[in-house]
């Protein structure tokens, strides 16, 4: 009885928290819709939604700013959730979506595409696809290397991933050293990462994948809580550890692979947001996953808005802002609060 009362109040608290976070997300999105190098004031937005579809303002708000906000949310939440899953899975606070070489695989695929000139024949759209193929190859490689007799060795998985990451980055440097200047440019564009994506279908599919990822991850929240106590304890608590590990690894990898192949490498979100959220809501994955998703999305939208406006009309790479702002905020709160990193 006491237990269920406790649970009820917890659920209530969590619901309030999620609602507050979503309200913040909406406010930030709206704000981000209003600011940019051409000032469009808030009271103009509403008539724009209803009215004239051919005006310049309409096209700036709905064709330029809105896609970036949606993509920002999708990628921010996907990376954050991937970060939560991986940190929980490895019980290691330093793991992030890019640690396992998935981004390296995507980057290598895209570099090869650029250097071989494939995108010139098949169009710019082939870049994200080849990037995803690269990510997928790395995922499969790491996955099968780390499975011995049906058991997934978490430590080996981590080490293999880190090594793959080193190998791919060396290969990318090799490609950059021997490629022509025009190709170098393209590679650097991609590595800097940007939420600018012309293709609506890609944006929508990333959004779909990341929402699905959040939902699926939420189903495994209790298993992740159990895993935080250690694999053996989790087995005793009735968790099918092997299956859970495999599913979660693949899920986190796919989330990372999709985001990275569309937007390039946007650092920091996947590492810091989970820690940041954990400081406020604790280590319980039932709330951690959903809260991280919303906070991650909000954070990336905010950073992108800043990147667009800080030295307008010039635009900064969004990774610059995520790193600087994220790092400073994180260190500030770390010094204020005593927290446990990773797991419980």
């Amino acid at each position: 009885m006491l237990q269920s009362d406790n649970m009820k109040s917890k659920l209530f608290r969590w619901s309030i928290l999620v609602i507050v976070l979503i309200i913040i997300l909406l406010v930030v999105s709206l704000l981000s819709l209003c600011i940019g190098s051409t000032g469009i004031s808030f009271d103009k937005i509403v008539p724009l939604v209803l009215g004239d579809k051919s005006s310049i303002e309409h096209s700036i708000v709905f064709d330029i700013r809105l896609p970036r906000i949606i993509l920002g949310f999708a990628v921010g939440s996907a990376l954050s959730v991937a970060g939560v899953i991986l940190q929980g899975l490895f019980r290691n606070p330093l793991v992030e979506p890019y640690t396992l070489g998935i981004s390296g695989g995507a980057a290598l695929g895209i570099c090869l595409n650029i250097v071989l000139g494939m995108y010139k024949i098949m169009g710019v759209l082939s870049l994200p696809f080849v990037g995803f193929a690269g990510a997928l190859i790395v995922i499969l490689f790491v996955y099968f290397l780390s499975i011995k007799k049906g058991v997934m060795k978490i430590q080996e998985l981590l080490l293999t991933g880190v090594m793959i990451s080193f190998i791919t980055s060396s290969l990318i440097m090799l490609i950059m050293a021997v490629s022509r200047v025009e190709n170098l440019q393209e590679i650097i564009f991609w590595i800097m990462g940007s939420l600018e994506e012309p293709n609506w279908i890609l944006i929508k599919s990333v959004l779909l994948i990341s929402v699905m990822g959040i939902v699926i991850a939420s189903f495994f929240a209790i298993d992740l809580n159990a895993l935080a106590l250690g694999e053996e304890s989790a087995v005793h608590l009735g968790v099918n550890v092997e299956k859970t590990k495999k599913i979660l690894f693949v899920l986190a990898s796919l989330l990372t692979g999709f985001s990275v192949s569309v937007t390039g490498i946007i650092g920091f979100v996947g590492l810091v947001i989970p820690h940041f959220v954990r400081m406020f809501v604790g280590g319980d994955h039932r709330i951690l996953i959903i809260a991280s998703a919303v906070v991650g999305g909000t954070f990336l939208i905010l950073c992108d808005a800043l990147a667009r406006t800080i030295i307008s009309p010039l635009e900064l790479p969004v990774g610059v802002i995520t790193g600087i702002i994220g790092g400073i905020i994180f260190i500030y709160f770390l010094s204020k609060k005593r927290i446990s990193l990773g797991g419980k």
Binding site: I56, I64, I188, F189, S312, P313, L314, E315
Partner: peptide
């Protein structure tokens, strides 16, 4: 009027210049 650098152009600015 400036519309950004060569590598990072500001699409919004360009559109607003019609």
């Amino acid at each position: 009027e400036k519309i950004g650098t060569i590598m990072e152009i500001n699409i919004e600015k360009i559109v607003s210049l019609k």
